[in-house]
Write a protein that binds this DNA or RNA. Structure first.
Length: 487
RNA sequence: GGCCCCAUCGUCUAGCGGUUAGGACAUCGGCCUCUCACGCCGGUAACGCGGGUUCGAUUCCCGCUGGGGUCACCA
């Protein structure tokens, strides 16, 4: 299996859909696992919808995910070009070859005419199954007239292939019609373009979504007519919306771009998607290396699955938390853009940034949450949650805050353990418990009622800032109106 | 409707003839605790139905039901 060649062939008609990412991922994993090549090809033969912007977004998304390609746009390779509209001559040549060998023919029926026939039939019998009637099948139309090229599907027999995940699939030829290979303008249709490209690019295995399973029999017919080697096929079960419908924009975020913007880690995204239709016993969380190691087509499932945003978040959370999956440095680098987006000034040293992020890491499910949670470290003054301040920075807390602050100021070293010890010594002497001052101190230091542990915060914030914020909090508490007496 | 595919907790799944049907997410209790989390402990929760095959079916076969995909000069 040293010469495995697989490909991902998106059409540049929008953002990269997470369903497409999953397809790309499985191909990529197989290539990496076998030491084969992962080829990226752009199928832009739908000129109505294809855009250069979309192509750029797709390439960027794949790079962000780390699904690097060995051959394709921007990296080159020996089987290029890797964009279909740059290969038009090839399709034309192969079509001529099929006409010459009697496997295809020119058809001058117009689309308008065929559409009319289809509708007429449907009007007569809504359940009827329209197939191209074969008007031009044996008519030998001249090349001088406007025409499409159709494949001459055998009237007898069936196509049988062994799918790597679904097993043997058999489809009678009678169920197929003489499909179009080349349009009037000479641009190939999906099935033809894919086969010509896959065969000329030496693709050995085609893995794609189950929604393409219906395309496999006609494609195999083309390979055979061309006298080309038929590649292996592996279809992946569908990823459906929670409602059971096909997953689309109306079901929430479906593009990689959105998850990137929401602060997901690329590995988290990939890890969630790989568990769709693939499993490895009870294991759920994998690093990319582990995935490459564990991947096989045999352990792919066949049942469709439903997208679950909560599980997705949970899987991402694991990748956010585990140091094994993401180093502190990577975590910091990835959080930076989100910090900047909040208008915060990044600390001069990565060490300080990493120390701050370490305190919010386990409670952050995304980088957005990490940036939000660490917000108070990077402002001159914390953004104050007024409800929390009103509740905890009350006159009764002023004195305790002062004692707390004093204890800290006298600590032998501004370091978590020492601060903790100093505060507890004071607490004991004053006959208080940490909970008697914790929330007031927390609001003074962070502006909120929920934050990382007090001593962690103090240590990261530093002596000067901490003492200043505590004093400001004490002042506010002392000046606050006494809470209403009751009972 | 034709063709193709699928079927274990709400969701993702383990299971490859004999299990108290396991894990994860979600959910509900509890513990931990300076808050929020994290972590830990525990609960609720599944083999769609009917025939076979077999000493024995979640597991193998058939049918049914249910669900999905696809039927373009889109991909």
């Amino acid at each position: 299996m040293a010469d495995v060649r697989v490909r991902f062939a998106p059409s540049p008609t929008g953002y990269l859909h997470i369903g497409g990412v999953r397809t790309a991922l499985f191909n990529w994993l197989y290539a990496r696992k076998t030491g084969g090549k992962f080829v990226l090809r752009i199928e832009d033969t739908d000129q109505e919808r294809s855009t250069p912007e979309s192509k750029a977004i797709i390439l960027e998304s794949l790079r962000w995910l780390g699904l690097t390609w060995d051959e394709g746009p921007e990296v080159g390779g020996d089987h290029g070009p890797y964009v279909q509209t740059e290969r038009l001559g090839l399709y034309r040549a192969y079509a001529e070859k099929l006409i010459a060998s009697g496997h295809a023919y020119r058809c001058t029926c117009t689309k308008a005419d065929l559409d009319a026939q289809r509708e007429a039939l449907k009007a007569r019998d809504p359940k009827a199954n329209f197939k191209y009637p074969g008007t031009c099948r044996d008519a030998n139309r001249p090349a001088s007239e406007p025409h499409v090229v159709r494949f001459k599907v055998p009237t007898e027999g069936a196509v049988t292939y062994v799918d790597k995940v679904f097993g043997e699939i058999k489809t009678p030829n009678g169920a197929q019609q003489d499909f179009v290979l080349l349009r009037t303008d000479g641009i190939p249709l999906y099935n033809f373009g894919a086969v010509v490209d896959d065969t000329t690019m030496g693709i050995t295995l085609v893995a794609r979504g189950r929604d393409h399973m219906v395309n496999t029999p006609p494609q195999i017919l083309i390979y055979e007519a061309l006298g080309a080697k038929v590649p292996e096929f592996a279809h992946l079960p569908m990823m459906l919306a929670p409602s059971g419908e096909k997953l689309s924009k109306r079901h929430g975020a479906v593009s990689v771009t959105e998850y990137r913007e929401k602060g997901y880690t690329p590995e988290g995204v990939l890890n969630y998607l790989v568990r769709f239709g693939w499993s490895c016993g009870d294991r759920e969380i994998f690093s990319m290396e582990e995935l490459v190691e564990a991947f096989t087509w045999e352990t792919c499932g066949r049942g469709d699955g439903k997208f679950d945003a909560k599980k997705f978040l949970a899987v991402n959370h694991e990748h956010m938390k585990q140091d094994r999956l993401q180093s502190a440095q990577t975590y910091a680098d990835r959080t930076k853009p989100f910090l900047v987006a909040r208008g915060l000034t990044l600390p001069a040293s990565d060490e300080h940034l990493m120390a701050a992020l370490k305190t919010v890491r386990e409670r952050s499910r995304t980088f957005i949450e990490a940036a939000e949670g660490a917000d108070f470290y990077f402002r001159a003054e914390p953004v104050v949650d007024e409800a929390a301040a009103t509740k905890f920075l009350v006159p009764a807390a002023a004195e305790r805050l002062q004692g707390f602050t004093q204890a800290l100021a006298n600590a032998p070293a501004w370091e978590e353990k020492a601060l903790d010890a100093a505060v507890h010594a004071w607490l004991e002497a004053a006959g208080l418990q940490i909970k008697d001052v914790a929330q007031a101190a927390r609001v003074a230091l962070t502006g909120r009622s929920a934050s990382p542990g007090l001593f962690e915060v103090l240590a990261v914030l530093g002596r000067e800032v901490s003492l200043a914020r505590l004093e400001a909090g004490r002042a506010r508490a002392a000046a606050a109106p006494a809470p209403a007496q009751n009972g």
